[in-house]
Design a protein around this nucleic acid. Structure first.
Length: 191
DNA sequence: GCACCGATTTGCT
DNA sequence: GCAAATCGGTGCG
């Protein structure tokens, strides 16, 4: 993989990660939904500079930023430029299914990884994973099937009170298991 | 020090 | 549709 891939802004990287393959200790699947966060974005954890919790967001590009959401969910990002990160919101699961079904308490494929918190539970993330590199060891992140730009949907991010203007949520069209549906895409909206 | 708000999910009304 | 679970960060006194 080109090391320069993550040396870009999160809004550039996020759509490019759709269709990649993510695994954590043998469990995972195809990336079907992502969101981008930047340092000058009021909705981003990095907006007010580094803290103990978000320090990984300012670390090595291509490494993980794992944080505790609402006091109980662990969410996974990949770091891009300093203060930039892409949140993995949903996967189409295909590896380590048995373990993920057990952890999620369901055998329905479409609900195993259909949200950032669910994904964290299925992959059994922990805060000890914060800062870990996606180097093919415990964490792997590799280009998978090529996805044409026409199959990547975009829209406003989920669960925010600020930063709703930017359409920095991306998803693979025609996929089951998204965290939420996307609004109908405008035609002619290239890039 | 204290109250409130989140990059969420689940279960109950 | 709404509240609960639960904790780090932020803002105010």
């Amino acid at each position: 993989m080109d090391v320069g891939f993550f040396h870009r802004s999160a809004p550039e990287v996020a759509p490019d990660l759709i269709g990649w393959h993510l695994t954590v200790r043998g469990c995972g699947g195809t990336v079907i939904e992502t969101e981008a966060y930047t340092p000058d974005d009021p909705a981003s954890h990095s907006f007010r500079g580094p803290t103990l919790r978000n320090r990984a967001m300012f670390g090595m590009p291509g490494c993980a930023y794992v944080y505790l959401s609402y006091g109980l969910h662990l969410c996974l990002n990949v770091v891009c430029l300093p203060g930039h990160a892409v949140l993995f919101r949903a996967l189409a699961p295909d590896a380590g299914m048995q373990a993920m079904m057990t952890r999620r308490g369901s055998d329905r494929k479409s609900v195993l990884c259909s949200g950032p918190g669910k994904l964290g539970q299925a992959l059994s993330l922990s805060l000890a994973d914060n800062g870990r590199a996606f180097d093919g060891g415990e964490f792997a992140l590799l280009p998978g099937m090529a996805v044409g730009p026409d199959r990547v949907m975009r829209g406003p991010r989920i669960g925010l009170s600020r930063g709703l203007e930017a359409e920095w949520r991306f998803g693979l069209a025609g996929t089951a298991g998204l965290s939420r549906p996307f609004a109908p895409q405008k035609k002619n909206a290239h890039r």
